[in-house]
Design a protein around this nucleic acid. Sequence first.
DNA 1: TGTACTGTTACATGCCCACC
DNA 2: GGTGGGCATGTAACAGTACA
Length: 323
Amino acid sequence: MLIKNRQVPLRMKMDEALLRRLPANHYKRKIIEEDFAKRKAGYDGEQAIDYFINRLPSHIFHIFHDLRLNVNSHYFQIDTLLLSQYFTIIIEIKNIVGTLYFDTISKQFIRKLEDREEGFRDPIIQVKEQKELLNEWFEVRGLSSFPIETLIGISNPSTIVTASKNSHHIYKKVLHFEHLKDRIFELMDQHKRSRITNRELLEIGNSLQHEHAPLVQDVTKIYGIESTEVGKGVYCNVCTQLSMVRGHGRWKCLKCGKTCRTGHIQAIQDYLLLVDRFITNKDCRSFLKLKDPAAASRILKSTGLPWKGGYKDRRYFLPEMLK
DNA sequence: TGTACTGTTACATGCCCACC
DNA sequence: GGTGGGCATGTAACAGTACA
């Protein structure tokens, strides 16, 4: 049963919004584009696993994608978590091309690509840490000695996995997506004893969902970009400029003439992702280049954003869907 | 307490678009 | 092309807050 779906990561949305609103010749653009490309590759890899995971027996596993939990003030992130009455599985997803080499003697994880070697953080150590923290998380909720298995899923079928001599256990842990299902069935054979009731399973599932704490970052600060550098206006998808003006229920591009009814939604989302976590009527007029406070009021109301405050100083907030 | 200011709401008017 | 419904707009009224 799929409990928590995978969503486009907030940081990816922020990078995308920033790229929309920075001038084409901005000196930080290349860094942001590279960061966005890396995150997108990771996200694409994570999405690819969903096809295989969602085919697992739904009456046994509760599936959670992209969880970020807090235990004793430590945050940890899990790409995919499979929870059952018998045991739980953490799956770390890697979308890395080339030949991957796990050196269990020097404890290094190396990627070879076109005669070039590059070191990465060892995903086996990564999932070991996740396992320890999840175990703590379970213990805090009175669930001790609940078995946790860890797997590393390789999304790219052309990626070759190798390991140093006498490290055959690596191949039980690191698998291409199409082999994950069989490995999970093997693990099911090893964990046949029920550890929790169905009710407890549902309760833990609810806690996992409610305690998921998405990472909210100030992306302009990370890249060292001033808020004044973030372009104002409504974006035209055709000429990729902030060149649209409001005219009777629609936005019209001054450069290419394209019209659109919903351009303001993306602009307001961009403001909430890049500038502040809430927007006022005044902010809206300034960012969308509107003159009429009543028009801004109607536009903000039409977005259905949650708001706080009375007639004055009303603040519209970042909706859950954007987190 | 009165005034200025900000933001929302109600209402009359005008525009757009589907239908004939 | 004419018509009518639906929706957006501009304006005015109203509500709430800040400040002298």
